[in-house]
Amino acid sequence: MGMFSTFHVAGSALTAQSVRLNAVASNMANAESVIGSDGKPYRAKQVVFAATPMGNAAAQGVRVTRVVEDSSPGRLVYDPRNPAANERGYVEMPNVSVVDEMTNMISAARAYQTNAEVMNSAKQLLLKTLSIGQ
């Protein structure tokens, strides 16, 4: 794998992790939203990744294929005074697990940081190689 392929692979990973961090931020911001923009409780969003060739056969990057809604059921909270409560007094809350989202955020942030370090290391190696040739 060539030096420039390293930049492409790490760059694709940075872009993918950025989308993942945005999805986590959206999920966290709407974790307590009773009614979403469509009039229903917010549904957690999950990012789906896929490997993608980058230039030559040896280099594999990553791309976001789609962002999907989590199909797991929402939480039911007993609050009969809430206007969104059903006839039994339960309010359907978003299916966002704050613990899972925090784990996703830490994982995505570390992956982003690691790929930024890969790009920085590749840049330093390239600069060192250029200085040797002088």
Results as ranks from 00 to 15, higher is better:
residue 1 M to T: 11
residue 2 G to W: 01
residue 4 F to P: 00
residue 6 T to V: 15
residue 7 F to A: 10
residue 9 V to E: 07
residue 9 V to Q: 05
residue 13 A to V: 12
residue 14 L to F: 13
residue 17 Q to T: 13
residue 18 S to V: 05
residue 18 S to K: 13
residue 21 L to I: 10
residue 25 A to H: 10
residue 25 A to P: 06
residue 26 S to Q: 14
residue 27 N to H: 09
residue 28 M to R: 03
residue 30 N to V: 08
residue 32 E to D: 15
residue 32 E to K: 10
residue 33 S to K: 09
residue 33 S to T: 14
residue 36 G to I: 08
residue 41 P to C: 03
residue 42 Y to F: 15
residue 45 K to R: 10
residue 47 V to I: 01
residue 48 V to M: 05
residue 49 F to D: 00
residue 50 A to T: 03
residue 52 T to W: 06
residue 54 M to Q: 15
residue 54 M to A: 13
residue 55 G to M: 10
residue 58 A to M: 13
residue 60 Q to D: 04
residue 63 R to K: 15
residue 65 T to L: 00
residue 67 V to L: 02
residue 67 V to A: 02
residue 69 E to F: 01
residue 70 D to H: 00
residue 70 D to P: 05
residue 71 S to T: 12
residue 71 S to I: 02
residue 72 S to W: 00
residue 73 P to A: 11
residue 73 P to L: 09
residue 77 V to D: 09
residue 83 P to V: 08
residue 83 P to F: 06
residue 87 E to M: 09
residue 88 R to W: 04
residue 93 M to T: 00
residue 96 V to W: 02
residue 97 S to H: 03
residue 97 S to W: 03
residue 106 I to H: 07
residue 109 A to Q: 14
residue 112 Y to L: 12
residue 114 T to Y: 07
residue 118 V to S: 01
residue 120 N to F: 00
residue 121 S to F: 12
residue 122 A to R: 12
residue 125 L to K: 03
residue 127 L to Q: 14
residue 130 L to Q: 08
residue 131 S to R: 09
residue 132 I to Y: 04
